[in-house]
Design a protein around this nucleic acid. Structure first.
Lengths: 215, 215, 215, 215
DNA sequence: CATGAATGAGCTTTCATTCAT
DNA sequence: GATGAATGAAAGCTCATTCAT
């Protein structure tokens, strides 16, 4: 956790340091991020940096927290009242919030990716595990309800499906980023979401259309 | 590409260097891999290393190629005659080969993950792009045929689905690895494959079972 | 010398700062003592510290003075009336006071050791020289009298013997510390003192016992 | 232990690095010695230094070993045949070798002092403990024999006396250094040794001369 | 009298790469 | 073809001290 020194800083300066750090971590990843570059870019002394943060991991965790807060702002109100909506509506809202966040904050999103894909770093692995746990805790009751309501096939393997739903969110973001260059005019996130929802709902198997008039 | 000096090396020595390098890249990733450790572990002089390879990127590319060859050995004969089988059989064979390879060569697989998930490294991004292109080239004709044969829903968005089928392979490996600890007795890959195939085929939407007696 | 700001501080606060500083210097020595740790441990602002003291050397000198005062409290009344006692009684009292002080204030004692053994630091060397001078001034008249009274062999080399008597005090403390672990039940200082006194008096040469019935 | 890289260095270069390191450790002590200063003074690259030594502790240990070898050269042949001489002759030889070494190699001697007086450093404490053990092992049998031969008072406390004999060697060196400035004309070590021997043998108590005609 | 942010030189150590032999 | 010593930039981090408020 950053030291009080950092929290007491004038907001403008604090923001600058956070932004610069975010940029650095997004561009180089945790391991290859350079404190030297951060302090130079932020125009502060190296000593000052270490008055603000314990160490490199400390800044990183703080940036992760800041990113988490930013992301929380994108959580649709729909997701806060999950009782009132059917499962696929909730899923759509979740993916929409993720994509909207990525669209507005691509760098912050990159940091999320690093955590999600980490193979070698213990610090990142902790964050990853925690993320997985909270993802599981989020989906678990929703799926139970969805099965009870007849929205989801009751024969699914729950742990597998939760794993997939978490992966699908990331996959949707990856697809969006790969197909919509930064600054592209056609950066609407809805097509991606609908493709993804339809994929998750129905798979790709050819259907006998007459039997499935809805959807 | 390794220099001739490397290719002319006695096979045993060459293998040793490859193995040691593979271990290093798998454990630390490209950026944090250390040439120092590689030469020490391989018992060769630092100068010799640079007689064999241009630089760090050169070894890495070579190791990637070696991994690619190893992986090719796992490609089922079924996949070489794609005409003779239906799409989902081919997909199952593809995923099975991927999982079998991961199970036998977890370190090599880790390197594949790093490429697939890379965010920050230009070299890795080149490999990633090439991998995507070849994945697209593999799936594109198969999907066309599968649609023609009525195996796949013709309404799908082809680029999206190809993206997803590639992602699903990685997702299946991740799921397998997360649920089957190293040395676990229950390390059968088939359950994972069937869960994944069913997911891709049918999605998770509740089905009117009477209408779909098969599968 | 501490600034007036320090001397005007409420006693409790002053004591706290002194104690914390003493601990720091005892544990890490002068060079490796950290002002950062001191202000943190004392719960004062770094700026405040430099309102109280000129610099690191200034606190250290003050702590040395405080230690000196503490040590003065252990000086036996016997030593204040040196006329009334024979030399070896005075020596015993001196060593007893040194050992008693060390036993009660091991940390303060450690600082004394650092000064006594210093090789590299100019500041410490000043303190050492001063200590030597005062030690010489203390012993010089006592030895003259002791020789006059026939207590000490008149053939000794006075500067050498004074050097040795000072060293012996430190040696007795070292011996005591090495043989009586902290918290040991058997932490009586008298055996050490008697061993030392006998050593200084008689040396280790085998004596013709009949001729020296006393002692 | 230094790496082979260092041992394979041309002798001249190796000597230079050793000398420079010795100077640095003698002047600043282990903790405050600076690798930066060493490499600058030796005219080598910082990277080269770390090709030669594992770390700071590694150079220091090596320098200690070099000093130990230098010191071993001063061990008089008399000390190698302890059977053939009486105890005080051996002691005189021991102290003479120590003083002669100090006289010729004052910097090397300073490093010995740092180990002997160390209060805070774990690495140095290990060296100190080992030094004490070997000192004890050296004196223990000598004292037994000396008592058996009637040279030493049988009533002495052996551990105490060994402690003192070790301290006396250091004390003799300190006395010599304090009284014979570097480059002094009068730098004969024998007076110091005889003063010390007499002190250890007979103490300072006034003697009835008729009973002790010898010495 | 108190505060604590700011400073930058300094620390030890690691790194990929070069090059003379 | 093999060797391994040399390099210096860069890394993360600590330090005593200053100074504006």
């Amino acid at each position: 956790m950053p030291k009080d020194t950092f929290l007491n800083l004038p907001e403008e300066k604090r923001r600058l340091i956070e932004e610069v750090s975010l940029d650095e971590f997004a561009e180089f990843g945790f391991n290859n991020a350079s404190i030297n570059r951060i302090v130079t870019a932020a125009g502060i002394a190296k000593g000052s940096f270490y008055q603000y943060f314990e160490d490199k991991a400390d800044v990183f965790m703080h940036i992760v927290a800041v990113v988490g807060q930013k992301k929380a702002e994108y959580i649709s109100p729909v997701l806060l009242n999950p009782e009132d909506h059917d499962f696929f509506t909730l899923l759509e809202e979740l993916y929409r919030s993720g994509l909207a966040f990525t669209k507005d904050h691509p760098k912050a999103s990159k940091i999320g990716f690093e955590i999600f894909n980490n193979q070698t770093n213990l610090l990142l692995d902790d964050l990853f595990q925690e993320n997985r746990r909270s993802g599981y805790a989020f989906f678990n009751p929703l799926i139970d309800k969805a099965i009870a309501r007849g929205e989801i096939d009751p024969d699914i393997d729950k742990p597998f499906i939760i794993h997939m739903l978490l992966e699908m969110q990331v996959a949707s973001i990856k697809f969006f980023l790969q197909n919509n260059e930064k600054g592209s005019l056609d950066d609407d996130i809805m097509p991606t979401i609908h493709l993804m929802l339809n994929f998750i709902k129905n798979g790709i198997h050819a259907k006998n259309k007459e039997n499935h008039p809805n959807d």
